[in-house]
C-alpha cells in the first residue's frame, strides 16, 4: 500500500474490548504527516481509548499500530514516547507536588543522556545537562507565556494555565505525533480561541496532531482532516467540509 508507506500513523483492523464491551471495532486509518486531524464522536464513542491504543496504554486484542511504517506491536508505552509520541489527557495530568518548571521538564525526560550515577554524584556532566534542560524549559514556558510562573506549585494554576503547561510538556520533546485529548474542554470561549491559535502555530511548524474535540466549530474552522468515531466504529473520515455534509455523520452525531 503506497498510502501506508507515506503515512505517519497507520491503524490496521484495531479491535479493543473491555470484557463484553467493544470499545473499538476494526479501526483502520492512515494519518499523513504534517496534518492537524480531529477525532470526533459522541461520549463513549472510543476516542480516548483510541489515543490510549496509539500511545500504548491499552493493548488491542487484534490489529496493529504503525508509526512511520514501523509496527508498534509489543512496544511498551514508555518506548513509544522515545519513538516520538506525546500526549495530553482529558483531565489534565500534572504532578501536584512539583512546581511548574519541574512539571515541564518531565516532558524532556527522554532527552537526558547522563545516567543515574552521574546525577547521584552531581558530576559536571549532570550539572551541565540540568542547566541546559532548565534553560530549554524556561524557553518553552516563555513560548506559552508561563515563564513568570515557573517556580509556582501547579496547584496554584488556573485550568487554562494547567492546559497550557500540559501542552508545553507534550511538545517539549519535539514529538513526531501529538495526541491531544480535548485540549479545549472546560475552557472559556476566549481561551478556546487562544488554544486554537497556539495549535495552529504548532501545525505551522510542521507538528502532526490528532485532537479529540467536541467543539465542532473549532474542528471545522481549524483542522485539516476529521475522523468520526461512533460506537467504536470509524464512521467516516475526510476533510472537514465533506464530513460536515456527510448524512451518516449528521444523523449520528451532528444532528443530535
Amino acid at each position: 500500500m503506497a498510502e501506508a508507506a507515506s503515512s505517519l500513523l497507520v491503524l490496521r483492523d484495531v479491535c479493543l474490548r473491555f470484557g463484553g464491551l467493544q470499545a473499538l471495532m476494526d479501526i483502520s486509518l492512515h494519518v499523513p504527516a504534517g496534518l492537524w486531524s480531529a477525532l470526533i464522536g459522541p461520549n463513549g464513542a472510543g476516542k480516548t481509548s483510541m489515543l490510549n491504543v496509539i500511545c500504548g496504554l491499552y493493548a488491542p486484542q487484534a490489529g496493529d499500530v504503525l508509526l512511520e511504517g514501523r509496527s508498534l506491536y509489543g512496544v511498551p508505552a514508555y518506548e513509544r514516547a522515545v519513538l516520538g509520541l506525546a500526549r495530553t489527557f482529558q483531565t489534565v495530568q500534572l504532578v501536584q507536588e512539583m512546581n511548574v518548571l519541574d512539571n515541564l521538564l518531565l516532558g524532556l525526560h527522554t532527552q537526558g543522556r547522563v545516567g543515574v550515577f552521574g546525577h547521584l554524584l552531581r558530576s559536571s556532566a549532570s550539572r551541565r545537562e540540568e542547566r541546559k534542560m532548565q534553560e530549554k524549559g524556561l524557553e518553552l514556558l516563555a513560548r506559552f507565556s508561563l515563564e513568570t510562573l515557573w517556580s509556582r506549585p501547579v496547584l496554584e494554576l488556573s485550568l487554562w494555565q494547567r492546559k497550557l503547561l500540559e501542552l508545553s510538556r507534550a511538545v517539549a520533546g519535539d514529538p513526531k505525533l501529538l495526541l491531544l485529548d480535548e485540549p479545549m474542554g472546560g475552557l472559556t470561549m476566549a481561551e478556546r480561541e487562544s488554544m486554537a491559535l497556539l495549535l495552529q502555530d504548532l501545525r505551522g511548524q510542521g507538528m502532526s496532531m490528532i485532537m479529540v474535540e467536541h467543539d465542532m466549530d473549532m474542528v471545522m474552522a481549524h483542522t485539516d482532516h476529521v475522523l468520526v468515531l461512533h460506537h467504536g466504529r470509524l464512521l467516516a473520515q475526510g476533510p472537514p467540509r465533506e464530513i460536515q455534509a456527510d448524512p451518516q455523520v449528521i444523523s449520528a452525531y451532528l444532528g443530535e
Binding site: 496504554l57 511498551p76 508505552a77 514508555y78 514516547a81 522515545v82 506525546a86 525526560h109 520533546g173
Partner: peptide, 9 residues
C-alpha cells in the same frame, strides 16, 4: 499513565 506516556519506564 502519566509517567509511562512521558517515556519513564
Amino acid at each position: 499513565l502519566l509517567p509511562v506516556s512521558l517515556g519513564i519506564p
